[in-house]
């Protein structure tokens, strides 16, 4: 679950990472002096899009931004600072340990920068003075211990997948997190119910839907197979509209709601469904597709292999839905139509 900047900063405060003074508002307000008005959106690149503004007229700025469709704002004190650095924490997938990612330059695009180093902190011991020392020497600033410790706590105690400060400002009074990007592990949300309540967030549904820009709806069972189906559509000259993995052992109801979900995207003109059943029963899948087909009313091309395959095919054919032996021919027909 990706958090808004102000939610991430609330978490920063909980683990003693200093943040600027600020308030969250949903309508224009007057604030004395120079402030930063920050649109609260989950997408990145807000600065480039002009959605973060330094101003002495908070009221007017918020009014303008509301016209652009933004509805939540973080208003923060303007903080003069001498330099910016980059710090984040995440799990190192290779070694299975948490790591600190650091750069002496803040505000950068970390993906493209060459000035980035990672510092692995073994999971079977706590953070040590020499870990902090190594990071501080690399970025060339002393006084990061509470920030590093806080980032690490977000990973280990709050189940964050990513906790990023970009930039971390160096001020007269020490470091200050000017921005936050925090993503929590969806699988661990069950043990942070109080936090979610405080943030007024519901637990996200564990549905795997990801929307893309094309017009061919994609449903599959299994993440790899579904991705492969998306990729095939692209390689064969089409454009996938989404990724939706119904998972193992999907029943009629789950399949029907998946087809409706994909079919109700106005951009979708046709739907490709790729099912390779292991524990999934093809007759159940077919019934779900038929049920949704009547509501969605867009052409559906189904590849169906696995348990009770013959029954499944009969059900689909008797309702005029095309069934195929392999994904290539299903996608081929879908793209030609």
């Amino acid at each position: 679950m990706k958090l808004y900047e102000y939610e991430g900063k609330r978490l920063f405060s909980l683990v003693n990472i200093p943040v600027p003074r600020g308030q969250v508002v949903r309508s224009p307000v007057h604030v004395q002096g120079k402030v930063v008005v920050k649109s609260q959106l989950l997408e990145g690149g807000r600065g480039k899009r002009g959605l973060v503004r330094v101003t002495e007229d908070s009221y007017g700025t918020i009014e303008e931004l509301m016209k652009e469709g933004v509805n939540t704002f973080l208003i923060e004190e303007f903080v003069p600072h001498s330099r910016e650095i980059y710090l984040s924490a995440m799990m190192d997938r290779e070694t299975g340990n948490p790591m600190i990612v650091a750069s002496p330059f803040g505000g950068i695009n970390i993906e493209e920068s060459k000035d980035v180093r990672t510092f692995v902190i073994p999971i079977d011991r706590k953070l040590m003075r020499y870990d902090i020392d190594a990071v501080e020497k690399y970025v060339g600033y002393r006084g990061l211990s509470s920030v590093i410790e806080g980032l690490l706590r977000l990973i280990l105690e709050y189940d964050a997948e990513l906790a990023e400060i970009n930039p971390l400002a160096i001020t007269e009074n020490g470091p200050l997190a000017l921005d936050s990007k925090v993503i929590l592990d969806d699988n661990a949300l069950y043990r942070h119910e109080e936090l979610l309540k405080e943030l007024q967030r519901e637990k996200v549904p564990t549905d795997s839907y990801v929307e893309l820009e094309g017009d061919v709806g994609i449903i599959g069972n299994g993440a790899g197979l579904t991705m492969a189906t998306m990729d095939l559509v692209k390689l064969m000259g089409g454009n996938p509209a989404d990724f939706l993995d119904v998972g193992g052992g999907a029943d009629t109801e789950k399949v029907a709601s998946a087809v409706i979900r994909v079919g109700s995207n106005p951009r979708v003109r046709k739907i490709v469904i790729n099912i390779f059943g292991g524990i999934t029963r093809c007759d159940e899948v077919a019934k779900g597709i038929v049920e949704a087909y009547q509501k969605v009313n867009k052409p559906i091309y189904v590849r169906l292999t696995g348990t009770n395959e013959e029954e499944g095919k009969k059900i689909l054919q008797s309702h005029g839905i095309r069934v195929y032996e392999d994904a290539l021919s299903a996608i081929g027909d879908a793209l030609r139509s």
């Binding site: 997938r93 699988n187 993440a223 990729d231 692209k234 993995d245």
Partner: peptide
């Protein structure tokens, strides 16, 4: 390799099928 058409920072079904900071 699956995921030619997968966008950045979006999790594609598997918890591990996600690109953070341009890695992988």
């Amino acid at each position: 390799i699956a995921g030619l058409t997968a966008p950045r920072e979006k999790r594609m079904g598997h918890a591990g099928a996600v690109v953070y900071m341009g890695m992988g």
